[in-house]
Design a protein around this nucleic acid. Sequence first.
DNA 1: TTCGTAATTGACGATAACGTCATGAACACT
DNA 2: AGTGTTCATGACGTTATCGTCAATTACGAA
Lengths: 220, 220
Amino acid sequence: MTEQSGGKPNRLDRRKARTRAALVRAAQAFIAAGKTNVPVLEITQAADVGMGSFYNHFESKERLYEAAVADALDAHGALLDELTTGLDDPAHVFAQSFRLTGRLHRRNPEFSKVILNSGLAVAGADKGLAPRAHRDIEAAVHAGRFTVRDPELALVTVAGAALCLGQFLHDHPERDDAEAADQVTEDLLRMLGLPAAEAHEICQRPLPDLDALGRPNSAA
Amino acid sequence: MTEQSGGKPNRLDRRKARTRAALVRAAQAFIAAGKTNVPVLEITQAADVGMGSFYNHFESKERLYEAAVADALDAHGALLDELTTGLDDPAHVFAQSFRLTGRLHRRNPEFSKVILNSGLAVAGADKGLAPRAHRDIEAAVHAGRFTVRDPELALVTVAGAALCLGQFLHDHPERDDAEAADQVTEDLLRMLGLPAAEAHEICQRPLPDLDALGRPNSAA
DNA sequence: TTCGTAATTGACGATAACGTCATGAACACT
DNA sequence: AGTGTTCATGACGTTATCGTCAATTACGAA
């Protein structure tokens, strides 16, 4: 009998987790490449695990893909948390999160493509990064920083902008990602009720160094 | 030898077009249902055509799906053209187009789901409805109605909002589609530089009657 | 060391889907 | 009517993929 929901992870548990992580990472690579119809055998070969191992961890390819997307989103969410701690102005938190997310499309293309190829499913209000954005917007509204009639609908536009910005940067490699992200963020801040001048100023503030942190992928 | 690129359609050509349209319609239904992995045989059965007919028109399932999405987008674009003719204020054209598109998610769920399940591929600047929106935004900027630094990036947010609004309405059947669409449009107008009061007013204007037109699906 | 358990593995039978092709029907043209 | 062409059709051989399973290995406990 090994680790029973609360005990410390055994060597056995670590091996199991490694196998699972290998499958998740392989799945992320395939999703990023747009190849979601690859046979199971191909996935297991890419993950360097046996064919039979697949069904030890996932009952179908779809479950694996769900897990892969969830993993990427969780990792990015944790990263944003790290990079926005200590900020007191909710508008600043929102702007910084959005600007960083925009930059991540270039910095971590694998993650970016996973999100983009997952389609709009990740834009649901209770999935992906939306809860975080929702929390930030609500906080800013409550603090009197944002003036928007319906925060839930504003979130809709914000989520859409985040996704389509990624797609845009992917389609236009010549565009500067930081500049584009900052401009979209500024537009969104104006939409959320900030005066134009202040929106512009917030998007010019320096950002924390992304290189100071580990890779934002938890399936390592 | 039948119709040779410019001649009038024969009876043979019409039959061919009917078969093709049946396949496209069946594909749209499957896309709307989220079932893109159905075997070819199932598609041809749903279209009520022979199995072999499929490869007379499309060399693969992917091509069929591409054609199905393009058809739905073209149909919606033509509908918007019809419904915005005669408007002189570019901001009004933009607002009306967006409000109508929002309403269409409920009015024509089939079309809506085709768009949503197509993912972000339809959000590219030169695909789908984006060229139309781009044209409207540029016109409004040129007319001094919108003041936005980078119209191309504004389009990114607009496209994202349109897509995510559809997803939102799909996830929240209890929300009034007209109200939500108007609110998002108003938010976008503010982002595009319109004063809040004017943005609100434009989104309260009456809309043309959608029932006065035929079904917005060209694959009939 | 020895035993029990959990996880890994690839081979294998069963099934599902593909795409072609020979046949036939609908049609245009004369 | 006669002829040649285009498109429609579904059966069929081929290939691809699935998911199971019995054997094996890695590990924990005693």
